[in-house]
Design a protein around this nucleic acid. Structure first.
Lengths: 193, 193
DNA sequence: GGTGCCATGTAACGCGTTACATGATTAT
DNA sequence: ATAATCATGTAACGCGTTACATGGCACC
């Protein structure tokens, strides 16, 4: 659908389409060039694009057909399916709390470290992006940022849940001074510590 | 890895493994039974599980090998790869603001409606879940909830970004009469020509 | 005369999805 | 009896990923 949508803008050829797609995502979503051509083949097979003659520069130019435009219009008018789960992070912890002998607390630490680092990288990237220049890229960046924040929040939730419901798998932090442990509150503040 | 991890708990057979996996996710992550068997074949091929004889009830029992246990242990010790993008929602909007003639504001509305509904469904589900009973399922539920919340937040961000940086594509809500409200059919018609 | 980018492909592999086939046991 | 559930598979299809092959062109 991404390639097809780009062709709705106007005719184009494989190599160029990859470049435009990757540009919209600031290069963070590498698109294999081989797949672009096989995708164009499939789109042609399904009657969504038409392969034209090579242009003056020898490029193999494809054009969206009416059926292709309809398909894109439909894609843009329908919401994406709710995509139930299939998040690897969630699956991993769902199984980690199921399989005995897994140090869930340690796993939380490992994952949070990775998530926070990811958050920092994205924040750094954000400073170099200009939404008035590359609106698509800045939107994608913000999407990844919010996703990373949600990951950190969820990891906090996992940690406190394990502490609450599986105390035996949660070796207490030695000090039983005060249980002034923030249960689930501000994830961003905690992760910035 | 999910099937393999379940086998680390102890021997099991295909049908049973699917049941346990789906139970951990409250049935919200349907696992095709055919794939379970092909997956077991592959795991056996790779030496991660061993196919034993059929038990007293005639079940084909598989057992995790040492290599399989190592593999699971490694999986649980390493963070999930950051998974750059590939979020359909983000891709859709990145292209929506790229392709001319797409009613981005309307698309935001459609997506937000779906996201909010999703949020309500999940919240309703959450009330029926007991974390002390099904910790895995309640963690997965919370993951989906936070994801849905992040989606809504991001959609708000998209809307305000479009209003700020693409004011021409953001028709002001100045509907004083039976206004010419841009509908999906308008978007379809526009992009289909 | 290399190095690197532009440009178009082909081939192999893995795996998720769907559909279908088959038979045993259990419930109504 | 018959419908549902348990249980084990096979086959076809689509598609993402990776690797490889080929050739033109530009730049140093």
């Amino acid at each position: 659908m991404g390639v097809l949508a780009l062709l709705v803008r106007g005719p184009g050829y494989g190599y160029q389409l990859r470049g435009e797609f990757e540009h919209r995502t600031g290069g963070s979503w590498p698109l294999n060039i081989g797949q672009v051509y096989t995708t164009l083949d499939r789109l042609e097979r399904d009657g969504l694009v038409a392969r034209g003659d090579t242009d003056d520069d020898g490029h193999v130019v494809y054009t969206a057909t009416d059926a292709g435009r309809d398909e894109v219009a439909r894609w843009f008018s329908e919401p994406v399916p709710p995509k139930r789960g299939r998040d690897e992070l969630a699956i991993k912890f769902a199984l980690a709390v199921t399989v005995p002998g897994v140090d869930v607390t340690h796993l939380v630490q490992v994952q949070r470290t990775a998530a926070v680092r990811n958050l920092q990288d994205l924040t750094r990237l954000k400073r170099t992006a200009d939404p008035s220049e590359d609106l698509a890229w800045s939107l994608v960046l913000e999407s990844m940022l919010l996703q990373a924040e949600a990951d950190v929040r969820w990891l906090d939730h996992v940690e406190s849940s394990v502490a609450r419901y599986r105390p035996d798998e949660h070796p207490a932090p030695a000090q039983r001074t005060s249980s002034a442990r923030p249960t689930s509150s501000d994830a961003t503040a905690r992760s910035a510590r």
